[in-house]
Amino acid sequence: MLLLSKSNHGIKMSCKLIKIEYYLPKKKLTNKQLETQFPEWNAEKIEYKTGIRERHIVNEDETALDIGFKAAKKVLQNYDRSRIDFLLFCTQSPDYYSPSGSCILQDKLGLRTDIGAFDYNLGCSGFVYGLAMAKSIISIGIAENVLLITSETYTKHIHQKDKSNRTIFGDGAAATIIEKSKKKGILEFSLGTDGSGFDNLIVPNGGLRKRFDINAKEIDDGSGSIRTENNLYMNGPEIFNFTIKAVPLAVERCLAKNNTNLDQIDFVIFHQANKYMIEYLRKKIKIPNKKFYNNMLFTGNTVSATIPIALKDCIDNNIVKNGDKLLLVGFGVGYSWAATIIEI
């Protein structure tokens, strides 16, 4: 106890989100291209219904680690990289089972070797979880400047004939720096987990339970999308049912934990799942439209990268300003969800 209070200098350490950058792969998949492949699809209709016009797709030889690296390189420009003393890497599309991508990234980014680094496997809740871990690591004095990389390439798991999922998902990576600060920049969290829905959003084959099967049969879902068990499967209606149940509660608990209410919150950023779903959640929770971000026009759903991408865009376009209180909520695959309030 004596040692702990000495290392803390008697002050409980807080932290703040300092910088965000993101990277989107160069190659794009537009609604027009989807319309060409699926003639029953209509480019304008896709945009109207999903809020997505185009998504970025990695090349065959490009991984989540590669685009995460590019996002991190951007965020480390004009930042003394020797200050980074912890690296967190969130992806569900790792280069290897072993070693951790974070170790490879430490070296590629030229970070110090006397720092902590690990990977964690989460999807749409990954960014808010990363903030929770960064806050913990900083507040107990393990590190002072944490680099959080959230990077995803779901398109690698999606079957070329899977119309629905190819429409929704895009690839992207974000890198965020969280620093120790006197002022409280990252407030309290409300986290949630319910594994009973694990098989409603899943890549069934390719892990060690069910190996990748080169002869996997094509499955037609009856609505014009085809996949195999090697590919990403999403039960859209069940995922929607889950979010209707979990997200309003997560928001309520997070606000209660912070002794605040929606009126005191300046802006709300949800995981950008799809326009229709988050607009319904907004109405259900009664969040005013002017306080709510709904923009995935040029990215699609980039999983753990959507919230930092949205946050960066809100900061750059002066949609949010210094001192604003923001409610962030991530939810999806697992099921896993997380909410917090940050002050920027």
Binding site: K49, T50, S164, N200, G222, S223, S225, N235, G236, P237, E238, F240, N241, I244, K245, Y276, M277, Y280, K284
Partner: peptide, 26 residues
């Protein structure tokens, strides 16, 4: 289409406060 199912789920939640399991839509 698949999004229509989401609209129906939303409508049932909003008007009737009920959740219908996804497989029932088949």
């Amino acid at each position: 289409d698949s999004l229509s199912v989401l609209s129906i789920i939303a409508m049932i939640d909003e008007k009737f406060g009920k959740k219908i399991p996804g497989q029932n839509f088949q």
